[in-house]
Design a protein around this nucleic acid. Sequence first.
DNA 1: AGCGAAGTTGACGTGCACGTCACCGTAACG
DNA 2: CGTTACGGTGACGTGCACGTCAACTTCGCT
Lengths: 130, 130
Amino acid sequence: MSEQTMTIREMCDAFDVTPRTLRFYEAKELLSPIRAGQKRHYTRRDRGRLKLILRGKRFGFSLEEIRQLLDLYDIDDQQQTQISRTLDLARNRLDSMRQQRDELDAAIAELTDQIALGEGVLAGKTTQTA
Amino acid sequence: MSEQTMTIREMCDAFDVTPRTLRFYEAKELLSPIRAGQKRHYTRRDRGRLKLILRGKRFGFSLEEIRQLLDLYDIDDQQQTQISRTLDLARNRLDSMRQQRDELDAAIAELTDQIALGEGVLAGKTTQTA
DNA sequence: AGCGAAGTTGACGTGCACGTCACCGTAACG
DNA sequence: CGTTACGGTGACGTGCACGTCAACTTCGCT
């Protein structure tokens, strides 16, 4: 139970994506499954990366941005010279994620208020709080 | 200082968007500036909506999703029958925003760890913590 | 050997969110 | 009165992230 690789279909079922999507990500160099002849075999590393890709997408990052971030998780393989650049990129990304979270918190609070307001209207009260 | 309306250019400068974008949003019925002859005049309401639109975009919502959410902030103008539907939509959206925030928190934590790891590598330590 | 299911590579199509360009109106300025 | 600036309306173009379809291999059976 060490070289647990998955076929493209197993990947699709596991992550709810289409084969087209996986091949597309590979073309964009986000994934690099092993080839057994022609067939693709996805390793644990590929699964980890895909998970990060899908998460990144939910946060509104482009595939290109995600590609650059993914390098951080493979930092062992990298040249020293590259690492510093990647770290800068990651720190920037981290900043914008923190900002995004703060904004998100604010938006959640606002929306919560608006819903309460709407529920009030439904309950027959007027908009005037007094 | 009550009917503070803005021209399209003032809007563009204030929100850092192009005229094309504002006209596009209008075509999609996200904005509805007053017309003085042909010219558009953006009211306080338009500015509020645009702010919400841009925020929504940063969270990865589509313009169509945003359009439906915007209705919640104009709930006074609506039919009772519509309000309930809009509220449901808003509650769903709120749920997914909360989920998104939790995920974002997790991602921030992970990325923070990875950065620390990378910094360790730069400092000359090996990946092996022991 | 034959067959179907699964996988592969192009190549073209699609929806979204605008960008770009050509052309028109009009209001202001020298 | 010409022209420059700002704004308007189509209409077509573009980048991204895939969807769709045709035309193969390649297994794994029977």
